[in-house]
C-alpha cells in the first residue's frame, strides 16, 4: 500500500509554495517587444580566464540574439573591445534608443577596496558609480543588470533601483575570489532544464535559480568552502525573458494573433484560479484547473500543428 493512500499528515499548512509563473504576458507579449542586450567580457588577466570570459559572453549573446529578430538588439563587447569608453558609450547609445527593456551582462573579474567596486577591463577600470550613473540616465523602462564578477556583491546597494533587477555573483565585496557563477549563468541560458515552468522562455529568475543551485552544488561536490554566494534583487525577474527555445523560438512573430490571444486569456484565467486556491476546496480547485489546462493544451497543440505545416 502506498504512503499517500494510507499515510495521513496531521500537520496542516503544507502548501504549494513555489511562485507560479504563467507566461501569459511574456509569452505573447513583452517577449516579442524590443529588448536590447549588451554583453561584456572583461579583462581575464591570463589566457585561460580570458578565453573563459569570452566564451561565456559569446554564449549569452548567442541566446540573447534569439530573443529578437533584429541582430542590432544584441551587442557583444569582448576582450580588447571592452574599454571603459566603449562600454559607457554603448550603454549611452542603447539608453538613447529607449527600448522597452535593457539587459546588461558584465562578465569577468571585479574588485572592491572596502569602499569602491571596480570592473576590471582593458585600460582604466569602470567603477560601480560609473556603471550606476550610465544606467540611471532618464530611463524608466525595465533593466536587467548582471554583474557576474568577483566582489560584485558590493554593488547590491548602489545599483538597486525600482525599475531594475540586479544579479551579482557574490553576496558582498569581500568575496573576492574568481567566480564560477558566469559559467553556470551561460549554461542556464542554453539548458531547457532551466525552464522549470516549461513555457519555452527562460526567465531571469529561472536563469538565476539554475546558476545559483549549480554554484552551490559545485562547491559541495568539490568539498570546497563556498567563496561566492549569488544574489538577486528586484521585482520582475519572473517575467523578464533571457532566452527562448522550442516553438516560440521557431515561431517568433508568426503565431496567429487569435491563438495568442486565446492562450493569453487562458493563462490569465489560470493565474486567477491560482490566486483563489486557498478559497476553494481541493477537489474544486483541481477540477477547474483541469478544465483550463485542457483548454491550454488544445490551443498549444493547434499552435504546434500550424507551425509544422
Amino acid at each position: 500500500m502506498s504512503l499517500q493512500r494510507d499515510a495521513q499528515r496531521r500537520t496542516p499548512g503544507r502548501r504549494f509554495a513555489a511562485a507560479l509563473l504563467l507566461g501569459a504576458s511574456l509569452f505573447g507579449g513583452q517577449a516579442m517587444a524590443e529588448q536590447v542586450t549588451m554583453v561584456v567580457s572583461g579583462l581575464g588577466g591570463n589566457d585561460d580566464y580570458q578565453r573563459q570570459f569570452d566564451r561565456y559572453a559569446a554564449a549569452i549573446a548567442e541566446q540573447s540574439r534569439k530573443l529578437s529578430a533584429n541582430p542590432a538588439d544584441t551587442v557583444l563587447l569582448p576582450g580588447s573591445a571592452a574599454t571603459r569608453e566603449n562600454i559607457l558609450g554603448t550603454i549611452d547609445d542603447i539608453m538613447a534608443r529607449k527600448p522597452e527593456s535593457f539587459a546588461l551582462y558584465l562578465i569577468g573579474h571585479g574588485s572592491h577596496d572596502g569602499e569602491h567596486y571596480k570592473y576590471n577591463i582593458p585600460g582604466p577600470d569602470i567603477t560601480g558609480a560609473q556603471i550606476n550613473e550610465a544606467l540611471s540616465t532618464d530611463f524608466e523602462q525595465r533593466q536587467f543588470v548582471v554583474v557576474a564578477t568577483s566582489a560584485s556583491g558590493a554593488l547590491l546597494e548602489l545599483l538597486s533601483a525600482e525599475n531594475r533587477v540586479l544579479v551579482t555573483a557574490t553576496k558582498n565585496g569581500r568575496e573576492r575570489n574568481a567566480v564560477f557563477f558566469p559559467q553556470f549563468l551561460s549554461e542556464a541560458l542554453g539548458d531547457i532544464g532551466a525552464d522549470t515552468d516549461k513555457n519555452e522562455i527562460i526567465s531571469a529568475e529561472e536563469m538565476f535559480q539554475y546558476a545559483e543551485r549549480a554554484v552551490a552544488a559545485y562547491y559541495e561536490t568539490e568539498k570546497l568552502l563556498a567563496s561566492e554566494h549569488p544574489r538577486m534583487e528586484g521585482s520582475f525577474a519572473a517575467d523578464f525573458a533571457t532566452a527562448h527555445y522550442g516553438t516560440l523560438l521557431n515561431q517568433a512573430g508568426e503565431i496567429a494573433p487569435d491563438l495568442l490571444e486565446k492562450r493569453t486569456q487562458i493563462s490569465a484565467n489560470i493565474n486567477s484560479l491560482r490566486a483563489r486556491k486557498d478559497d476553494l476546496s481541493e477537489e474544486k480547485y483541481f477540477d477547474e484547473l483541469q478544465t483550463l489546462m485542457l483548454e491550454l493544451g488544445a490551443v498549444q497543440r493547434e499552435i504546434d500543428q500550424r507551425s509544422s505545416q
Binding site: Q290, M293, G297
Partner: peptide
C-alpha cells in the same frame, strides 16, 4: 492520483507539453 499529480506538474509548468499530453490521455 495520476490526474492529480499531472495537474500538479502543470501547476508548476502550464506549458509542459508532456504533462499536457498525459492529462489529455487521462481525461
Amino acid at each position: 492520483s495520476a490526474r492529480r499529480s499531472v495537474l500538479q506538474a502543470l501547476e508548476h509548468a502550464p506549458f509542459f507539453r508532456e504533462a499536457q499530453d498525459l492529462l489529455l490521455e487521462l481525461t
